[in-house]
Amino acid sequence: MHLSPDSIIIFQVGLVKVNGTLVFTWLVMLLLSFGSWLVTRRLSTGAEVSRWQSLLESVVTLILGQIKDVTRQDPRRFLPFLGTLFIFVGTCNLLSVIPGFLPPTGSLSTTTALALSVLVAVPIYGIADTGFGVYLQNYVRPTPLMLPFNITGEISRTLALAVRLFGNVMSGSMIGGILLAIAPLFFPVIMQLLGLLTGIVQAYIFAILAAVYIAAGLKIHESQVSPENNATPETQ
């Protein structure tokens, strides 16, 4: 039993090992891109809308609504990053019910990569919104003594983001495998159903936390502009 799809080496080109995580990720990327292309190549702008277009519009509208609720800003500039996080994580977790499919989100490497992308995206959005100098000054507020704590907070929350997703997905897969060995008839099915629910919840949590982190970087700037706004950045 593989604890992570990283351990499944499909083939190796020189020092580069193409493992199961990468292959399953490519499959998910292909599925999402091709499916999107199939649906969006003939979009309707009238009253008659196909079911798939209606589904995608619902998903996009839902994501936009959630982002707007969290950031209180125009959600469209966050949509590609946060939306892709949610859709990718959610799709990987949903596909985990397919026998033989190992979700890439069950790999700590994948969740680390996603957490690192959040770690990078937060300052990028912050700097784009407030400017480089102002954003960096946030780390020494209210006093330079807070600099180590702020940096630690950034790293720890990124680590928590990665480990939370990895742990939940990996544990789900492992519990399913263990139960399959102990009681192969009934319980694995229930656990798989629960896995569908927890997979979507984890995708939602991951994307929402990323949105919260990004919004926190923006709200620091807003609180400086309008002192009456006492909102504090969320860290965890």
Binding site: D6, K17, P80, T84, S109, T110, T112, A113, L114, S117
Partner: peptide, 25 residues
């Protein structure tokens, strides 16, 4: 547990997926 080569590939994959979904979705 962390394969840093995979992490880098996954970062690139994620960026590509962002571009693809932005383009097609």
């Amino acid at each position: 547990l962390i394969d840093w080569t995979t992490v880098i590939f996954q970062l690139i994959n994620f960026l590509i997926l962002i571009v693809l979904l932005k383009r097609f979705l």
